[in-house]
Design a protein around this nucleic acid. Sequence first.
DNA 1: GCAGTTGCAGAAAGCGCTTTCAGAAAGCGC
DNA 2: GCGCTTTCTGAAAGCGCTTTCTGCAACTGC
Lengths: 344, 344
Amino acid sequence: MPERTHVTLQDVARAAAVSPATASRVLNGSANVRADLRVRVQDAAGRLAYAPNAHAQALAGASRRTVGVICHDVSDPYFAVIARGIMRVAGDNGLLVMLASTFRDADREVAYVSMLRAQRAPAILLIGSGFEDKAWERALAAELDPYLRGGGRVAVVSRHRSLRVDSVLPENRSGAAALAKALLGMGHRRFAVLAGPRALTTVADRIAGFRDALTGAGVHMSEKDIVECGFTRDGGYEGMIRLIAGGLRATCVFAVTDVMAIGALTALRDNGLSVPGDVSVAGFDDIPIVRDLTPPLTTVALPLEQLGERAMELALRENAGRRSRIVRLAGEVVIRESTGRVRP
Amino acid sequence: MPERTHVTLQDVARAAAVSPATASRVLNGSANVRADLRVRVQDAAGRLAYAPNAHAQALAGASRRTVGVICHDVSDPYFAVIARGIMRVAGDNGLLVMLASTFRDADREVAYVSMLRAQRAPAILLIGSGFEDKAWERALAAELDPYLRGGGRVAVVSRHRSLRVDSVLPENRSGAAALAKALLGMGHRRFAVLAGPRALTTVADRIAGFRDALTGAGVHMSEKDIVECGFTRDGGYEGMIRLIAGGLRATCVFAVTDVMAIGALTALRDNGLSVPGDVSVAGFDDIPIVRDLTPPLTTVALPLEQLGERAMELALRENAGRRSRIVRLAGEVVIRESTGRVRP
DNA sequence: GCAGTTGCAGAAAGCGCTTTCAGAAAGCGC
DNA sequence: GCGCTTTCTGAAAGCGCTTTCTGCAACTGC
C-alpha cells in the first residue's frame, strides 16, 4: 500500500490540540487523562477515521494479538473442526487467529512460519506438519528454534521427532486397536487397509494399532492387504479400485482416515458393490460429514475440537519446566451402518 | 513476545563488520555490494539465525506481502474451494494468504478488517459478507473506506449495496432458473424450496430465479412451499423435517445450497423416504462432496475456484476508472441421480 | 596530471508509535 | 502563604529497519 498516506497519531493529536503522547494515552485507554481532552481526542480520531499503524505499535513495544495457525489445507474437514476449537479458545483470550494452508509444501510452510516469526506473532500452531520428512523438520526447526528463543510459543497437533515444543496427540494406536476389536466382534477375520503414506506417523500408528489387535486375536493380515495410497478422498477411491481389481478377499476395509473412506465408499458404489452387504468399511476421525453418507460410516471419533482447544491452551500457558508437554486425547469407536456382522 | 530480545540487523552488521546499511542491502539482494562483504553478511545472518522484524521493515517502507481473506467459516466447503483459487493466484504473485473466519459475527468481521488495515495489508478479500444487514455494512464501510483511501485494495465475492469495491458474483438467478427448467423437463410440477435466510441476497436471487422459471412455465409455487431455515447442513435437515411434517406434497425439493441439501437428504433417509423415488432433491454450488453422496446430488455447478481467482485478480489489478468493477460467473446445471423423472 | 565519472560503503534521517522522564498546575496541611 | 505531594501533560528517546545523501576511492578521457 504505497501511494497515499495515512492518518497518523500525529494528525489526531494536532486535530485535538494535544500532544501525541496524550493522544496515545487516550486511544489505549490506559492512563489518567482529563475528561475534556479525552473527548477531544476520541472525537478527532473518529472524525479522521484514524487506524493505528500496527507495525509502529509493535515496534514501539505494544503486545501482539494475532496468533498464526498453519495446516496442510484448511478445507480438510478434519482440520476445519480443529480450527474451530482453536478459535474458541483464542477468542476467549482476546486473540485473533489467522490461518494458512501449506498444501503439504515444505517451502510454503517454512515461509509462513518465517512470516509469523517476522511478525513477532505471540504464538504459532502447527496442525499435522511434515515432520515425517527429516529435511522438512530440520528446515522448520531452523525457523522455530530462534522463534522460541525469542519468546515465541509453539504448539503442535501431531507427532514430531526432535522439536522442543508442546504437542497434543490423538491416541491413534489405541483407537485403531479398539476399532479392530469391535470389527473382530462382528465376526470379521479378513481385513484390508487403505493406508495413506506410511511414512506419516499418523498412518503408521493407526495401522500398527489395528494390526496389534488383530494379531492379539490370532488373526493375520499380510502386507499385501495394506494398500498405500494418497491421503485424500481421491487416494481412497483409487486405493479401493486397486483392492477391487486385485479380487477383494477382505470382508472389511479399514481406511485410515474418514476422508479416504469416503473415496472408498464411492469406489465401491461405482463398482456395484454394496456396503455393508458385500463389504464393511470403517474410517477414522469422525468428521461431521460421515453421518450424512449412505451408509453412515463406522469410525473412531476423535475429539477434534478439543484437539484444537488443548493446543491453543498449551501455547497460551507458559511452560515452566524445561520439558515439552504432551497432551494425549483418546478416541471412541462409533459403530454405524457401514459395517455389519459377517454371515457365518 | 516480550521477554527475550531478538537478533537485529545491527547485530548482523556488527558481526560482519559492516554498517547496517550494507547489511540491509545484502539481505534485500538489491544494490551493489562487494562480493566479500556480501558473503560476510550472509554468513553472519545465517549464524545468528537472523529474522528481519517485519514491523520495522513495514514501518521503514518495505512492501507488504501478505493479503487477508475473510469469510464466514473456512470449514464451509463452498468457501474452501474458493480459497484454493485465491491462493493459487496469490502464490503466482508471490503473496502469502492469511484466512480468517467470522462465524457470521459482525464484530469479529470488523475486527479482522481493522487488523488487516492496521497491518497495512496490500489487499483484503471478503467472501460472502454480511452485507444484507444495513448496520453491518455500515460498520464495515467505516473500516473499508479509509483503507481504500489509504491505497488498500478490496474485492468481494457476493453482492453488496453501497461499497465502492470490486466484486465477483456467481450468476445465482440464471443458474437457479436453468435448474428449474431442467427439473420441469423431468416432469416435476410441485416444488418446495429449502431457503436460507431470505435476507441474504444469495438466497433471494436463487429463489427468484427458480420461481421466475416456474412462473414462465405456468407452474405456481406458493409462499408456503418455501421453508426458511438455517444456512447450514443442520438448517437443511431441520427444514426438511418441517416439510415432511407438513405432509410433503412436492415431488422435488430445491435446497438453495448443497450444504443444506446434504442435511435434507439425511432427513429424508432418517424418515424412510427414498431419493429420487419418493422425492427428488437438487442443490446449488456443486461442492466436491456431493459426488460422494448416495444418491449423488443434482445441482448447479459454480466455477468456485474461478470465483476466488477472479477476486484475487481484481484486487491485484489496479482499477483505473472510478467505477467499481463487477465480474459475473455463470454456473451450469449438473444432473445426477438425486433427481428423477416423474412417473405420469 | 587533472577535472569529471563511476562504484560502493557509511552516516543519518525518519517511518508512527509507546513510554519514560521531567515539569507545570493544582491541591493539601500547617 | 509556603513547601509538599499529587495529577496530568508534553518533550523526547528509541523500537529496527530502509533509504537517501554524502564521501571516499578508483577510474576515465583529454
